[in-house]
Amino acid sequence: MAGPANELRKQWNTKNLGGRLATDFVSAFCAASMVAPVISIIDRSIMENASGRATLSDSLKSSFRNLLLRPQTVLFSKPVALIVMLYGGTYLTANTLDTCTATVKNRPATLVTSGTTKFFASSASNIGLCIYKDAVYVKMFGPATGSPRPVSLPSYALFTLRDCLTIFASFNVPPLLGPVFESKMSNELRKKISGQTMAQFAAPACVQLISTPVHLLGLDIYNRPNGHAGPVSWQDRWTQVRRNWLTSSMARICRIVPAFGVGGTVNAKVRRSLMERLS
């Protein structure tokens, strides 16, 4: 006689579950590998500019020159591997959550969610991986003088806030904003690009104007800790942040477009295409 637990399982969508989980992994890391080199170069330039090691333009020129002339030194480097780990893990978390939700709620395999559960799960994954990445990057590309210091709790807290803003704009806003864009678009424009795709590019980019000063303040606390000469005033820190706000915001927008615009779109489209074959 079938019990309540067996009746519940019959309502789950477990068709090709192993293949669907493999699809989540493949789409996540394909997207992350595609965008990692550019993101790594931009992250390095922002940190070197904030620490005074090199200007933003000089760092970008040097890194892109190496990518062009000696691609193996960039593509197979530790900084790029860290970015693949960061965004591959973030996409994978969002993907597997969608698959688990589709399974338990007996929904199609192509389901994409946009609720608080996805926000907290994606944030936890992204923040944990990004804190590790930032700790390594800031030591590699921070001040050239002296030995690398441990990253302080205030810097970690500011990096966490920065990532929460970006994750919310990247995973939760596009599914909500996409239909709004769609309703305002002409039929001809809809044939060329969907409202969801427009939202996937616009939302993460726009939030960088808010999250960049948070990021810069975290870097400044690491680069200029309170020392024997006395504490660094918040006014002085704000002056430093404001000086780099515009250029760093533009750089982070250029960074976030591949990270959650191109990468997010590639991840979503590859996942949907593979899931449709498994349905």
Rank of each mutant, 00 (worst) to 15 (best):
A5Q: 10
T239D: 14
R237D: 04
A169V: 00
A169T: 00
L274M: 15
L56K: 14
V136L: 13
F119L: 09
P231T: 13
C254S: 07
G89H: 13
V232W: 12
S27H: 00
S233C: 05
G19E: 09
L68Q: 11
T110H: 12
I193C: 07
S147V: 05
V241G: 04
D236C: 04
G261M: 03
S51M: 12
V136S: 08
S249I: 01
S186Q: 07
M47D: 09
E188K: 13
V207Y: 00
D236L: 04
S170P: 11
I221P: 02
L69A: 14
R271E: 09
H228P: 06
F76R: 13
T197P: 03
P79K: 05
V262D: 01
F141W: 15
N6F: 02
M275E: 07
L219C: 03
Y137K: 08
H215L: 13
T145C: 12
Y222W: 06
M85L: 11
F64K: 09
S273H: 10
P4C: 10
R277M: 13
V270L: 11
S155C: 01
F181C: 10
P154S: 00
W12P: 03
L97F: 13
F119M: 06
A28G: 04
T145M: 08
S123F: 09
L209N: 00
P154N: 03
G3C: 06
P174W: 05
I46L: 08
T160Q: 02
A54G: 04
P108T: 07
L8I: 12
A205K: 01
T93N: 11
C164Y: 01
T110F: 06
K10C: 06
F29M: 04
L129Y: 04
F76I: 09
A268L: 03
Q200N: 07
Q208N: 05
P150Y: 11
R255Y: 07
D220Y: 12
A229K: 11
G195C: 03
P37R: 00
A169L: 00
K105T: 10
D98F: 14
D220P: 05
S40Q: 02
S152T: 07
A54I: 02
R20P: 11
R271L: 11
T212I: 07
S77Q: 13
G3M: 04
V173D: 02
R53G: 05
L8H: 11
K192C: 10
N187Q: 13
K192T: 10
L17N: 14
P79T: 09
C254Q: 01
L17K: 14
A2Y: 12
S123A: 15
F141Y: 15
K15Q: 12
D43W: 08
A135K: 12
A31G: 08
V74D: 04
R107G: 10
G178T: 07
G128F: 08
K61P: 04
L21G: 04
V270I: 07
K191R: 15
S183Y: 12
R224V: 05
V112I: 12
S122M: 06
T265M: 09
P175C: 14
M34G: 06
L92P: 02
F168Y: 08
L153C: 08
A54D: 10
M140K: 14
Q196D: 11
D163E: 09
V26N: 04
F159Q: 00
A202G: 06
W245V: 03
Y87V: 02
L161Y: 02
G218M: 01
A135Y: 08
L177N: 07
K133T: 00
